[in-house]
C-alpha cells in the first residue's frame, strides 16, 4: 500500500467521563487504511472496535490524537458524505417501502427523481433484492432486511463503507451467504470497507487487513495483513493459510486478554 491512506489514525485517544471515573475507550490507536482495503476490527466487547468505527464516522469525537478521513477531519468527511454506514440492526423505516428506504439518503442528498429511481434499481440488483422495491420491511426476513440496509449505504457515491457487526444478529447460514456476497460486492465496487465483527472466521474470510483489539484500555494489539488471495470461495476456510491466519488472530486476542487480567 504505497498510496496515501484513506483513513489515518495517529495516537487516537477517547476517554468517556462517567460517574465511576474516566473510561479509556481508545488509547494510542495508530492505523492506516489504504484505498480499496477491506479492514476488519475484531476483539472482545469493550475493546473499542465499534467506538473506533464511530470515530471515523464522526459519531464520536476522539479526545486526543489525529484522525483523518480522505484527508479531512472525520466531521468534514461526514459533511462531504464520504462514507456509508451499516448498523448492527437494519434500522429500516417501517413506514417506507424497501425502495423508499434506499431513496432516503438520496432524497436528503438531493439526487434527482430519475437518478434516484435508477440508483435504487441498481443497488437492489447489487444486493440481490430485485422485485422487492415495493415491499415493506416487515415483509422481508432479517437477512433480506440487512441486505436492504447495505443497499441503502451503497446507493450514494461514498467510496468508504463502514459496517458495525452488520451480520451479528443473523444465523450462520445466512451470514456465510452474505459474507460471500459482500466480497463480490467489494470486488465490483472497489470501496474501502471498515468492518467490525467478533467472529474470527468472518474477519479472516473477508479481510485484507485484520486489526486485533483488546479492552481496558481499548487498543490495537496486532495488525495482520492477510496472505489470502483476492479470489475467495467459501471453502478457502479449510485451507492451511486460512487456519494459520485465524490462529494468529486467536493468539492476538488471547495476548490482549492476558495482560488485561
Amino acid at each position: 500500500m504505497s498510496q496515501v491512506p484513506v483513513i489515518k489514525a495517529e495516537n487516537v485517544d477517547l476517554t468517556f467521563e462517567t460517574n465511576d471515573g474516566p473510561v479509556h475507550a481508545l488509547k494510542g490507536v495508530d492505523l492506516d487504511i489504504g484505498k480499496g482495503e477491506f479492514v476488519s476490527f475484531i476483539g472482545p466487547s469493550g475493546c473499542g472496535k465499534t467506538t473506533f468505527l464511530r470515530c471515523i464516522a464522526a459519531l464520536e469525537t476522539p479526545t486526543g490524537g489525529t484522525l483523518t478521513v480522505n484527508g479531512l477531519t472525520p466531521d468534514g468527511a461526514r459533511k462531504a458524505r464520504a462514507y456509508g454506514y451499516v448498523f448492527q440492526a437494519a434500522g429500516l423505516y417501517p413506514w417506507r417501502t424497501i425502495g423508499g428506504n434506499i431513496r432516503l439518503p438520496l432524497e436528503i442528498m438531493g439526487y434527482s427523481k430519475s437518478d434516484q429511481a435508477e440508483r435504487v434499481k441498481n443497488v437492489l440488483q447489487l444486493v440481490d433484492l430485485d422485485g422487492f422495491e415495493k415491499k415493506y420491511p416487515w415483509q422481508l426476513s432479517g437477512g433480506m432486511q440487512q441486505r436492504a440496509s447495505i443497499a441503502r449505504a451503497l446507493a450514494f457515491d461514498a467510496d468508504i463503507l463502514l459496517m458495525d457487526e452488520p451480520f451479528g444478529a443473523l444465523d450462520e447460514i445466512v451470514r456465510d451467504r452474505l459474507n460471500e456476497e459482500l466480497l463480490g460486492l467489494w470486488a465490483r465496487t472497489g470501496k474501502t470497507i471498515g468492518f467490525v465483527t467478533h467472529s474470527i472466521p468472518e474477519a479472516v474470510y473477508l479481510s485484507t487487513k485484520i486489526v486485533v483489539m483488546s479492552p481496558r484500555p481499548g487498543r490495537i494489539t496486532d495488525v495482520i495483513e492477510s496472505p489470502l488471495p483476492a479470489e475467495r470461495p467459501l471453502d478457502i476456510r479449510d485451507s492451511a493459510a486460512f487456519i494459520e491466519v485465524a490462529h494468529r488472530v486467536r493468539e492476538g486476542l488471547r495476548a490482549g486478554h492476558g495482560d488485561a487480567v
Binding site: L59, F87, A89
Partner: peptide, 16 residues
Amino acid sequence: AMQLDLLRTYNASDTE
C-alpha cells in the same frame, strides 16, 4: 439513537 445516527451520517439537517 441508531436511527438518529443514520441521518447524521447523511449529514441531514434538523428539518429533514
